[in-house]
Design a binder for these strands. Structure first.
Lengths: 257, 257
DNA sequence: TCAAATGTCTCTATAATAGAACCGTAATTG
DNA sequence: CAATTACGGTTCTATTATAGAGACATTTGA
């Protein structure tokens, strides 16, 4: 059983996004179809604790500095920048496309580390970005290696179509995942964004459970030809192997182990 | 009026620190002197929403990936890395000590950006670190330029002594702050940590209210001599002036403006 | 100049929470 | 190896905090 008040409050917090970073009390109440009194109390409480701040003139609320602290703590705990990021940077340089690490978190994949391509046109994504597991190479790579019951949970959780290419039919998805699992990698075009391609490979914990994926992505006009794809997969798998070795060696304990 | 349930829950969250990143239900309940049922419900609710995760074997809780997202959003909003960080890096190189930017947040100063010294022995601090405003050069610099009633609030909020050098007597503090305000900078030794010196200067918003400070810090054995100090202050003030110009120019809107 | 929208506050029926007691399991210890 | 302690999780009900409508003073904008 969960606390309803806290649950609602966290739901409110989720409306503070990159697209909508500031909210007025009644504005947010209208958006959520909730009484403005309730929203007011929630926002005021978050503000009291430094999780939100209120602009003294506009009276609107936005995320507070408290999140810097917590975000940094999570980052420190993941401890990817010392060993994993350099590997990713090398990869990005070799392939000349952006490389990113996606972590499994419930029914989402979360971008936890990025090495951007040096090209002027490149795939770009923020740390902390959250994507449903049925969308795109980085996420489907993870989903493919999950137990069947987890796959079902994720599909039951709802498969939103965000581009025409997004797969939303359960049967089609299962067939696709099966193929990914067998070949050990995933290649997609236009699923996450209509102008992006991606190639992903999985990463596992010591119990051989999938916990993350390593993915390269770039603009669709640079997508690999059928002959070039195996080579790209090879390079990516080599990088993943190095990261995997680090996970194994240091008995990478954080999350799902 | 604030929501008690949410308030308590956020208080619980604050126990997840760098020093104590993982907590079991009863362990945390004991620490907080609260029934373990209550703690359990709070932790379970946070976990449900991805703000905490539970280790499947030890059953202990730690911060979840959701904070990566929020932390990054706050960082993006501050938008310091493009213009301010390079200035800080230049400063750090010129002075050969670490330089950091501290933001006013309630009764605390929060480290929001860092340029580390290239020396092997250097002052090091994490982004998001929160320090009471009465401690150290970076914080006292801010406090000195706050209105008197805010100073009183901060002192009433409690002045913990964390080193022998920490000033905790209100009268002594006020005299110290007055001096800082008049000279426009602050030099401290051993207040934050017994082995650290710091020199700080204030930064203001468009209404001339203090919102942050720029500080250099290093090991106490490299602290500037009385003759060298003015030069160091000069270099620091020059950097601060550049940052200030950026704040003014781009009508730096985030927080306290 | 008037009307609509805003953040904040007050009130009370109602619904959610606190906290003790309990459960089965896992770890610890004599 | 048996007994004890500690653990996360659950159930129960008296108590308490919350939901939600409404009012208020300001501000905004037509």
């Amino acid at each position: 059983m969960t606390l309803k008040t806290l649950d609602n409050s966290l739901e409110v917090l989720k409306y503070f996004s990159k697209e909508n970073p500031t909210w007025g009390v009644r504005e947010l109440a209208k958006e959520m179809n909730i009484s403005h009194s309730i929203i007011y109390r929630i926002l005021a409480t978050f503000e009291n604790q430094g999780f939100l701040i209120q602009h003294p003139e506009t009276k609107k609320y936005e995320l507070g500095l408290r999140f810097l602290e917590y975000g940094q703590m999570v980052k420190d705990k993941l401890n990817l920048s010392d060993f994993v990021l350099p590997i990713m940077k090398n990869l990005a340089e070799a392939i000349k496309e952006s490389v990113f690490l996606t972590w499994l978190d419930g029914t989402d994949g979360v971008t936890v580390e990025i090495a951007e391509s040096s090209q002027t046109i490149k795939f770009s994504v923020s740390i902390g970005t959250r994507t449903p597991l049925h969308i795109g190479a980085s996420c489907k790579t993870i989903m493919a290696f999950l137990p069947d019951e987890r796959k079902k949970e994720i599909m039951d959780h709802g498969m939103k179509k965000i581009t025409p290419e997004t797969i939303t039919e359960p049967d089609k998805m299962l067939a696709d995942l099966e193929k990914i699992k067998q070949q050990g990698w995933c290649f997609t075009t236009g699923e996450y964004s209509h102008s992006v391609f991606g190639v992903g490979v999985p990463l596992f914990n010591s119990k051989k459970e999938v916990i993350a994926s390593l993915t390269i992505a770039g603009p669709i006009y640079r997508k690999p030809t059928e002959e070039k794809l195996p080579e790209m997969v090879n390079v990516l798998q080599y990088g993943a192997m190095n990261i995997q070795r680090y996970f194994d060696q240091y008995s990478f304990k954080l999350y799902h182990e």
